[in-house]
């Protein structure tokens, strides 16, 4: 979408255009791909075959769920427990769908394909955009770049297993939170997102020692849901402040 001269919101927001969005999406794909290397390696170490590791990345395609299933199976739990844990962690993607559904407005086959691309990264890259078109571009470009690079990386990681360096040495474990923080920043433009974010951080960190890995993030959805339910209507607030 073109910037309209004299449009205040266009001046205040960070300048973005389609090229920037695609470039950033590829960058996210590369950072996530690096994590995919370690997923492939860890899956093989946990006793999965190369084909099974690749099947997880192709079919499950959800980082948290994939690490959970190899963790649970690696610890010797039943396959059903592994599947249940992975599904529970996938609930986060269902919640992103709630945000993405009105943006994407997809139907039929397109919806079946778009659903597969719903991820932390693609949802994040659709946020804070100036137009629906840019939001959709952020979602699809990121979803596709992460899908391609995550799967290639899983294969390489699984094949290379033991010769692979620890991604932590390269600081890559900080790439994801740094990227999410950068994507959150333009959304923190009023009181509501600040309250939601701070409450979520508090709840999630408090839950870390109490709940199994992956669940604290889900629990962090509760304050956002409550806020959405309980806060006064925006119309009312405008009248109060006027």
């Amino acid at each position: 979408m073109d910037c309209v001269a004299g449009n205040n919101s266009a001046v205040l927001e960070r300048p973005t255009d389609k090229k920037t969005i695609v470039r950033d999406s590829l960058g996210v794909g590369l950072a996530v791909g690096a994590l995919g290397l370690s997923f492939g390696a860890l899956a093989v170490v946990a006793g999965f075959s190369v084909a099974q590791a690749c099947a997880l990345s192709l079919l499950m395609f959800s980082g948290a769920s994939q690490f959970a299933i190899i963790g649970v199976a690696g610890a010797g739990a039943s396959p059903l427990a592994g599947a249940a844990t992975a599904t529970m962690l996938g609930a986060r993607n269902g919640l992103y769908g709630l945000h993405l559904s009105p943006l994407l407005e997809v139907k039929g086959l397109r919806k079946l394909l778009a659903a597969h691309l719903v991820l932390d990264e693609s949802a994040a890259m659709s946020m804070g955009r100036k137009s629906t078109g840019e939001a959709r571009l952020g979602f699809y470009a990121t979803g596709i770049s992460v899908f391609v690079l995550w799967n290639i990386a899983t294969l390489i990681g699984a094949l290379a297993t033991k010769s692979l360096p620890d991604p932590a040495v390269l600081g890559l474990d900080v790439a994801a939170p740094a990227a999410f923080l950068a994507l959150l920043a333009p959304r923190m433009n009023s009181r509501e997102p600040w309250i939601a974010a701070l409450a979520a951080v508090g709840v999630a960190l408090a839950a870390v020692p109490l709940l199994p890995a992956g669940v604290p993030v889900l629990v962090a959805a509760i304050p956002a849901l409550l806020l959405g339910l309980l806060l006064r209507e925006p119309v009312e607030r405008q009248e109060v402040s006027a």
Partner: peptide, 26 residues
């Protein structure tokens, strides 16, 4: 409003946990 706040909350929680989480401790 819930659907607008949800990704903000989930991503903020992810940032916090990926930064301060270490298995089951902080």
């Amino acid at each position: 409003r819930m659907s607008a706040l949800l990704p903000v909350a989930l991503l903020a929680a992810l940032v916090a946990i990926q930064t301060f989480g270490d298995k089951d401790s902080l």
